[in-house]
Design a binder for these strands. Structure first.
Length: 510
RNA sequence: GCGGUCGUAGUUUAGUGGUAAAACUCCACUCUUCCAAAGUGGUCUCGAGGGUUCGAUUCCCUCCGACCGCACCA
């Protein structure tokens, strides 16, 4: 019998994963026959199963198996005022400045400048990018300017302003940090929300947006859920669904795309409750969940966002990071958002969002902890973590490579492959088909009778099927009606009965 | 969005201003008693559009897409 040796990571793991995803029907570029569309992807027959399994695992663990979380599904297009209240209309558009010569692009609010004032007269301008020593850099540049031009007089301290505060006249004079000459364009807004129009008329009054996150659905429907859902604090509202962001640069396959699926939950707590405790609770819960679908602890880490970088309302944000082939990147963000979102909607809509708490006899707007994760990112993480190329040595001592996706049985697109040992022996195929039909009622299973048995095993390895069941002559000729159960990772074989097979699936697939 | 590199079959890659290939994969049949066996047959290709040319997959332009870098990433 063959045995797998230690797995080796291919030189270019990302390339191997993308190639496998295409070859085996997990992920295709969108609209490929027209040349593709940057930032959009389609999920193929196996991909849609994998994605659905991840989503279902999340939903089962997050909603159905918890007493304190309920699910909803809200519309992708919402009232435009939702996005004004949430800050997305204003905050989602970053004013950007281009240097016409160097072709560098800067965020206007991170590009600082100051007039050079000597004896009360403006002699020129200096600029610098935002960092810890921006003011010092501007001052030094101003002094250098004065020395070079040999201007006599007293140099006033620089007054740093960001580029959004520059007048048109000043824009024409402020030097680009790249060239030192005034080559900058005026700030231009890039809004990342996709716009559309509702109704037949296409005018300003009909503008609507595709949601850039699903979270606002939970906030906007908060009162409806509270009034009808028999929920009490602390409790969560969850949903999964598509979101859309017009990313400037989609990158890294499905990691950052323009249409993606989120799985978000808003966990509402009493205003006096210990937010830090709940924040920690959800970080641990999410980490545990990721491990339960097969992501190795060695690839997971945490990153706490710096307090200074957080939005003013945020009490803390921790990201669960994953080691992708292209670097350690954010997988799951767990944010403590205070009661900012409900408060904003209360202000903007005029509808009170406070609830009455029977225990404390207080009326208040609840605070919230938000674990938000991208389904497509988890999908990619499971592919990257599960992909392995192994040297396999057979009985004759020949060594060859096998490609295997080591998916957890929970998320594997196919749970069991049913293989009659030989195609041309009806006793084998009949028994196999009977078992196949029986398993099919509860599990995603696959029947394959074509080609040599070894080839069929390897095909299943490559799509991550945890078990293969082979109907052989022992099944037919010996008592007990047992099959060969071949395990994907160890390639070990043992004999099991139908009852044992169902028991194994019942335990491993949940 | 800018710059660089690149785009030939499902995958990995040859090749050419004059009818486009290999390996593996995939499909069918034969055979096959446990790890990508063998045989026979078969499907599928020059990213798109325009230009130059008698003729363009090849040269030129534009677009689209991929990768890397810069910038961006609520």
């Amino acid at each position: 019998m063959s045995t797998p040796a230690a797995a080796t990571e291919p030189a270019n793991l990302m390339e191997a994963v993308v190639s496998l995803a295409k070859r085996r029907g997990f992920v295709f570029p969108s609209s490929e026959i027209y040349g593709g569309l940057n930032g959009f992807f389609d999920y193929g027959p196996l991909g849609v199963e994998l994605k659905k399994n991840i989503r279902d695992c999340w939903w089962n663990d997050m909603v159905r198996r918890r007493d304190d979380v309920v699910g909803i599904e809200t519309s992708i297009i919402m009232h435009p005022k939702v996005w004004e209240a949430s800050g997305h209309v204003a905050g989602f558009s970053d004013p950007l400045v281009d240097c016409k010569v160097s072709k560098n692009r800067y965020r206007a609010d991170q590009l600082f400048w100051s007039p050079i004032v000597i004896d009360g007269t403006i002699h020129g301008y200096v600029s610098a990018l935002e960092n810890e020593k921006t003011t010092e850099e501007l001052q030094a540049a101003a002094e250098l300017f004065k020395r070079k031009k040999a201007i006599v007089g007293t140099l006033a301290p620089v007054q740093p302003k960001d580029f959004t505060e520059a007048t048109a006249d000043e824009v024409a004079k402020i030097p680009s940090p790249a060239t030192g000459n005034p080559d900058l364009t005026p700030p231009r807004a890039f809004n990342m929300m996709f716009q559309t129009n509702v109704g037949a008329m296409t005018d300003a009054s009909s503008v609507a947006y595709l949601r850039p996150e699903t979270a606002q659905g939970m906030f906007v429907d908060f009162k409806n859920v509270v009034d009808t859902g028999r929920v009490k604090l602390p409790f969560g509202i969850a949903q999964t669904g598509k979101s859309f962001r017009n990313e400037i640069t989609p990158r890294n396959f499905i990691f950052r795309s323009r249409e993606f699926e989120q799985m978000e939950m808003e966990f509402f707590i009493h205003e006096d409750d210990d937010w830090a405790k709940w924040h920690r609770y959800w970080i641990d819960w999410c980490t545990g969940w990721l491990k339960s679908i097969g992501l190795p602890a060695s690839h997971l880490s945490e990153y706490d966002h710096l307090k200074e970088k957080l939005a003013f309302y945020s009490k803390g944000t921790t990201d669960i990071m994953f080691k992708f082939p292209f670097g350690v990147q954010e997988l799951w963000g767990i944010a403590a958002r205070g009661n900012y979102d409900l408060g904003q909607h209360e202000k903007a809509s005029g509808v009170p969002q406070a609830i009455f708490d029977e225990t404390s006899k207080k009326k208040f707007v609840p605070h919230v902890i938000e674990p938000a994760v991208g389904l497509d990112r988890i999908f990619l993480a499971t592919l990257c973590a599960g992909y392995a190329e192994e040297a396999v040595t057979d009985e004759k001592g020949n060594t060859e490579m096998r490609t295997v996706l080591r998916f957890s049985p929970r998320i594997a697109p196919v749970k069991v492959a049913i293989l009659p040992l030989l195609k041309n022996k009806e006793v084998l195929t009949d028994r196999a088909k009977t078992l196949y039909k029986k398993l099919q009622r509860r599990y995603a299973v696959f029947y394959d009778e074509g080609g040599a048995i070894g080839r069929r095993y390897r095909r299943q390895d490559e799509i991550g099927t945890p078990w293969c069941v082979t109907i052989d002559f022992d099944t037919i000729e010996k008592p007990g009606d047992t099959f060969t159960l071949r395990e994907r990772d160890s390639m070990a074989q043992r004999r099991v009965t139908e009852a044992e097979l169902f028991a194994l699936l019942e335990e491993q697939v949940y």
